[in-house]
C-alpha cells in the first residue's frame, strides 16, 4: 500500500486537529487558574495568583493528597503481589478454568465502576457488617488494580526464555532462588510499569471510592468533586487541575525510560 502525499497531509492535518481538541480544554484550565474573575468568564478580564496562594494554604487539600497517596501505595503493593502470582500461574500452566481465572482478573475493570462500587458497598456493609474505612477503599482499589500488573507481567513472561529457569534448576537452585535470581530481575521493569499504572488508576479513581470510603476518608478526587460546585472554591480546583496535569508527566517520564531501557 502506497500512501499518497496528499493523503499523508490530510491525515497529518486531522491528527493535528485531534491534538488541538485534546489540549484546548487543558489550556483553558491553565489560564483559568489565573483568571481574576471568580466565575471564570472568558476571556479573563484580569490575571491573578490569588487562587494559587489559596490552594497551597488549603489544609484540606493537602490532607486529601496524603490520603490518596496512602491508598494508592497500599493498593498498588497488594496488586503487585496478586497480579504477579496470577500471571505466573496462567503463563506457565494450562489447566481447567484458566479462561475463567483470566476473565476474573479483567472483570473488575471491565464492569462499570458503579457496579463494582455498589457491589462492594453492599458486601462490606450489608453482608459483612463492616464500617467503611480507608481499608475498604484499599481493598476495593487493589481488586481492580490487579489487572494492570497482571497484563504487564503476563506479557513479559511470555517473552521470557523458559530455558533459563530450567538451567537454574539444573544448576541446583531451588524454586525460590530461581525466582529471586533469574525470574525477578527480568520482571523488574514490567512490575514497575504495572505498578505505575495501578498507582495512577487508584490515585484517579472516584466512583468506586465514593461507594467504599467512610465518612472521614477524603481522597483527592473526592475533594475536587466536593469543591467543584462551591463558588468560592471552584477557582482553586483549577489550580489543583493544573498541578495534576503537570504531575502526570512524572509517570510518563518513568514509563518512557523503562521502555528505552528495554529497547536498548
Amino acid at each position: 500500500m502506497r500512501i499518497s502525499t496528499s493523503a499523508k497531509w490530510v491525515l497529518g492535518f486531522i491528527s493535528g486537529l485531534v491534538l488541538l481538541f485534546i489540549y484546548l480544554p487543558l489550556f483553558v484550565v491553565l489560564i483559568n487558574s489565573f483568571n481574576a474573575n471568580k466565575n471564570m468568564v472568558w476571556p479573563p478580564p484580569a490575571l491573578t495568583t490569588e487562587w494559587w496562594g489559596k490552594a497551597f494554604k488549603s489544609l484540606g487539600l493537602w490532607e486529601a493528597v496524603a490520603t490518596s497517596v496512602e491508598v494508592a501505595i497500599a493498593s498498588t503493593l497488594l496488586a503487585l503481589v496478586l497480579g504477579t502470582l496470577v500471571a505466573m500461574a496462567l503463563s506457565r500452566y494450562k489447566f481447567f478454568g484458566r479462561q475463567v481465572v483470566s476473565l476474573l482478573v479483567i472483570l473488575p475493570i471491565a464492569l462499570p465502576g458503579i457496579v463494582t462500587g455498589i457491589a462492594l458497598n453492599n458486601a462490606f456493609r450489608t453482608i459483612l457488617g463492616l464500617q467503611l474505612t480507608m481499608a475498604t477503599v484499599i481493598i476495593a482499589h487493589a481488586t481492580f488494580c490487579v489487572v494492570t500488573v497482571y497484563n504487564n507481567v503476563m506479557a513479559r513472561l511470555s517473552r521470557m526464555n523458559p530455558n533459563l529457569q530450567d538451567a537454574s534448576a539444573d544448576l541446583g537452585a531451588g524454586l525460590w532462588t530461581t525466582f529471586r535470581l533469574v525470574t525477578f530481575p527480568q520482571l523488574r521493569s514490567a512490575l514497575f510499569a504495572g505498578g505505575l499504572l495501578a498507582f495512577g488508576l487508584s490515585f484517579d479513581e472516584i466512583i468506586v471510592t465514593t461507594f467504599t470510603a467512610g465518612n472521614g476518608v477524603v481522597t483527592l478526587p473526592i475533594w475536587i468533586y466536593d469543591n467543584m460546585f462551591r463558588p468560592g472554591q471552584a477557582p482553586v480546583v483549577n489550580v489543583v487541575a493544573v498541578v495534576l496535569v503537570l504531575a502526570s508527566m512524572i509517570p510518563i517520564y518513568f514509563a518512557q525510560r523503562v521502555s528505552a531501557v528495554q529497547d536498548s
Binding site: 491534538l19 485534546i22 489540549y23 484546548l24 480544554p25 487543558l26 483553558v28 484550565v29 483559568n32 471564570m40 472568558w42 495512577g200 484517579d204 472516584i206 483527592l220 478526587p221 475536587i224 468533586y225 467543584m228 480546583v237 483549577n238 489543583v240 487541575a241 495534576l244 496535569v245 502526570s248 508527566m249 509517570p251 510518563i252 514509563a255 518512557q256
Partner: peptide
C-alpha cells in the same frame, strides 16, 4: 505517543471539570 499519554494520566475529574469551563 507522549502527547496522547499525558491526558490519559491527567485526572478524570480534571478533564470533566475542564469541559465544564469550556
Amino acid at each position: 505517543v507522549i502527547l496522547i499519554l499525558m491526558p490519559l494520566w491527567a485526572s478524570y475529574l480534571v478533564k470533566a471539570y475542564a469541559w465544564r469551563s469550556v
